[in-house]
Design a protein around this nucleic acid. Structure first.
Lengths: 203, 203
DNA sequence: CCTTTGCCTTAACCCGGGTTAAGAACGACG
DNA sequence: CGTCGTTCTTAACCCGGGTTAAGGCAAAGG
């Protein structure tokens, strides 16, 4: 199912998180399945059971909430070799409350949580790998907490541009605004301020 | 070192997260050490190596950042049977960037990360337990992200009161304000609004 | 006892971001 | 080609929260 190149890329990614014997790696490959997701399609939707997660092989995904008034709030963008899935809900064994949408056509390597958990009951290496994945997620969320607590909207925008420079051009601004917790109008103003300052320095 | 009662309480807490054989439990008890922290003392300080975490046996801790202008930003309050420590920095193998301060005299059960990691290399049960702890941390941070993205300051305050009703009375309000990402003045106004509304309903 | 210190509140003023609305630029599609 | 969505921008107005400052209150310490 996976091309040799894809398998190599995944192996490198997983191996960077935790040492993996060839045997464990084979087991992981056997547990996952490659799936395509067309642009605009959903990997997770609120109300549906949260039983699967995936590693992105290619493409770009967006995680977001949708509140009662119809406002979208973007939790994350996930690109190649990153983990995607309603992980908090999986852990809590609750239905998903988040949309995960493909912003571009995407290829995923999908795992059933139940299968991974079962295999991890007898594989310390796998258990450790999952732990590392969760740690990576945790660090990302704590960084986000840091930004909400300490930075202004403008600083959060700069941080975003600095941390995902390739993506900034391709993601619609209202989604970036939502990610940093402001409205599209406010982001437009922030960008205008930035442009004004730039041309002041070099008129 | 631990009283029988403390050990039972810890055992119950750990066992609720993941099944633990008596052998694993003995190993865990042997790895940790009970430490007292006087009110106002620190379990973690920025710049110091992040090599230890702890389970709170009794007392109340506060995790916070301190920025260049001297502003404190509270990340978390942690009470009995909760995990404390600069976990993001531990995972990243970086020096701590967070203060962890005892708000009351506290008893901790402290672990050296290196010792836990080493033991977890040969214990699937321990590896799994650590994973569960990280998952709990992750879910908490994601909940916090949800609140920053979707709720107003007033709603965050209500949520805080609802989720930690016993603590609200005992924690200084400027620390609560910092936790929900506003100033003490703003929190005072929010509380005043609440009082006004309450006496309108029953004058 | 009085002073100090920390905590909370109130008020006045300011500013960043929310809201609403209108328009420009662009691509998709009939 | 025109029309319709979508995205982005700009402007006007409003409001929540930031800032600063002053005062009240209670506990701590001389």
């Amino acid at each position: 199912m996976l091309t040799a190149m894809e398998e190599r890329a995944l192996h490198e990614r997983f191996g960077a998180l935790a040492p993996l014997s060839p045997k464990t790696w084979k087991a992981i490959v056997a547990l996952g399945s490659r799936e395509s997701l067309a642009e605009g399609a959903f990997f997770s939707q609120p109300g549906k059971p949260a039983t699967r997660f995936a590693v992105v092989i290619s493409g770009l995904l967006r995680h977001y909430y949708l509140d009662a008034k119809g406002k979208e709030s973007v939790k994350a963008f996930r690109g190649p070799m990153e983990l995607s899935g309603p992980y908090a809900e999986i852990v809590q064994r609750r239905p998903s409350r988040t949309f995960i949408e493909a912003l571009t056509d995407a290829e995923l390597f999908v795992f059933e949580v139940a299968a991974i958990d079962e295999a991890a009951e007898t594989s310390l290496e796998l258990q450790r790998l999952v732990r590392r994945f969760v740690e990576v997620q945790f660090v990302a969320k704590e960084q986000r907490e840091y930004e909400f607590l300490l930075l202004s909207a403008e600083e959060r925008y700069r941080q975003f541009c600095a941390s995902l420079p390739e993506l900034v051009q391709h993601i619609p601004q209202h989604q970036i605004a939502s990610y940093i917790g402001i409205t599209p109008v406010a982001l437009s103003r922030i960008r205008a301020r930035g442009r004004k300052r730039a041309e002041k320095r070099r008129p």
